[in-house]
Design a protein around this nucleic acid. Sequence first.
DNA 1: CCAAGAAATTAGAATATATCTAATATGAGA
DNA 2: TCTCATATTAGATATATTCTAATTTCTTGG
Lengths: 144, 144
Amino acid sequence: MDSEAIKQSLKGSRLRCTPQRYAVMAFLMRQNRHSTAAEIFAAVNRVDPRSSRATTYNNLRDLVKAGLVRDVAVEGRAARVEAKGVRHHHFICDRCGMVEDIEWYNVPRPASGSLGRRVLRECELIFRGLCTKCAPARGSRRVS
Amino acid sequence: MDSEAIKQSLKGSRLRCTPQRYAVMAFLMRQNRHSTAAEIFAAVNRVDPRSSRATTYNNLRDLVKAGLVRDVAVEGRAARVEAKGVRHHHFICDRCGMVEDIEWYNVPRPASGSLGRRVLRECELIFRGLCTKCAPARGSRRVS
DNA sequence: CCAAGAAATTAGAATATATCTAATATGAGA
DNA sequence: TCTCATATTAGATATATTCTAATTTCTTGG
Ligand SMILES: [Mn+2]
Ligand SMILES: [Mn+2]
Ligand SMILES: [Zn+2]
Ligand SMILES: [Zn+2]
């Protein structure tokens, strides 16, 4: 697949392509979802080789630092992480905490005065509400 | 001050106005910042009466449920919380994690197709970069 | 190929954050 | 004032994350 691409991006960030690190990156690209460290740790160990919890966290930290992976914080839930792909916004479910991607579109910058001396790097929209699974089923009616 | 207002909003949410709960709410309104549970716990106990850690967390949970307080998650940092006031966006510092308010302005909704069956409750912009304190001082130059 | 240093991994301990338990206390309506 | 649903408490527990220091594995130059 894109195993060569993964190797290249690691090398490009001067990170050794170890089996454990590769496994984390491959998992994130394959899933294309927002995973917790615990999920990643479990998943890469279901296959081979055995990777420790510390290594999973170390690798996630390094991959984030290298810009290949992004942290996604969710209120009241464990931190999540995703492979950086095309730019997008996020939808976060109030009920189950699931994070889903929303196709990117440009958003207006704040009035320059609002930012003051701050240095702006990026901006992103967060939508909140109920995901498809948590939304009341179509056609159902609530009784008052 | 607005101590009567705090009492009223607690009563309106059917929450007893206990000294501990009042102290949490008063602290958040007075600070008008984004505080961690540990900060709140320390602050309300610096004064009187002694409040336990469990009570601090319980009260924050109840106040969030009642809609008087809002959770703010920050990647790689302890959760924060703020009194709900006027609607606003957020700026989060890459370096120190500080969360600052940005004056509200309307943002365009996503194309209806992007949302599918999801139920949208709110949307908010997150700006990232360097806060005033972390941005390079005005006039300084980086050497290549 | 080999030696040597740099980078990465490991198990388990340590820390940080948050929730639970069950005994006790208290606010507020009747 | 009486009553009891609600709230508080200390401490235990659970969960999430980082640290430590010993060991292993890459990589590079000879
Ligand atoms: Mn995403
Ligand atoms: Mn805010
Ligand atoms: Zn959901
Ligand atoms: Zn800062």
